Amino acid sequence: MASLHDSQLSALAATIDDAAERVAAMAEDIQARESEAATALYEAERSLQMAQRAIGRARRSLES
């Protein structure tokens, strides 16, 4: 069962990583003309990075 959960968490982590990269790219693209929107996107990227770390902690705790 732990293997199934690890697989699911791995897939979720990959999805979050992709979303974080896309959000960061969008923020960089609009930063010069839409600074408020870019700031919000950078905040979203940080939140996604925190989610990545939380998923990593969950995966490690399933290993033990």
Rank of each mutant, 00 (worst) to 15 (best):
A54H: 06
R60S: 13
M26I: 02
A19F: 04
A58W: 03
S10T: 15
Q52F: 00
S47I: 00
E21Q: 12
A25K: 05
R22N: 14
S35I: 13
G56E: 04
A38W: 09
A13K: 09
R60W: 01
Q52C: 00
Q52K: 11
A25N: 10
A40T: 04
Q52P: 00
A2Q: 13
I55S: 02
Y42G: 05
R46Q: 12
G56N: 08
Q31S: 14
I55W: 00
E21Y: 12
S47W: 01
S64W: 07
E36I: 05
A27E: 07
S3C: 06
A27P: 06
V23N: 06
R60P: 01
E63I: 13
E21T: 08
L41G: 06
D17R: 13
V23P: 05
R33F: 10
E36H: 06
Q31F: 04
R33D: 15
R57Y: 05
A40D: 09
A37G: 01
L48R: 06
R59I: 11
Q52Y: 00
A14S: 15
A58V: 07
M1D: 09
S47Q: 09
A44S: 11
R59A: 12
E45L: 01
A2T: 15
L41W: 01
A27S: 09
L41T: 03
H5S: 10
H5A: 15
I55N: 02
E63N: 10
L62V: 04
Q49G: 00
M26K: 11
E63M: 11
A54N: 12
D29A: 10
V23L: 11
Q49F: 02
G56D: 07
S64E: 12
S35H: 09
A37V: 06
E45F: 00
E28T: 09
A25R: 05
M1N: 11
I30T: 10
A25V: 01
A44M: 06
R53P: 00
A58M: 09
A20V: 11
D17P: 01
V23Y: 08
I16D: 03
A13M: 07
Q52V: 00
L48Y: 10
A54C: 05
Q49H: 10
V23D: 05
R22V: 07
A13G: 05
E34H: 12
A38R: 07
A13Y: 02
A20E: 13
S64V: 04
E28H: 11
L41H: 03
D17G: 10
E63V: 13
A51D: 08
H5E: 13
E34Q: 12
L12Y: 05
T39N: 12
A13S: 15
E28G: 13
R53D: 15
S61Y: 10
A13H: 08
D29E: 12
A44V: 08
S64L: 08
Q49D: 06
A2M: 04
T39I: 06
S64D: 11
Q52T: 08
D17F: 01
Y42S: 14
L12E: 14
A27V: 08
A2L: 05
A2K: 14
A40L: 14
E63W: 05
A38Q: 06
A14V: 03
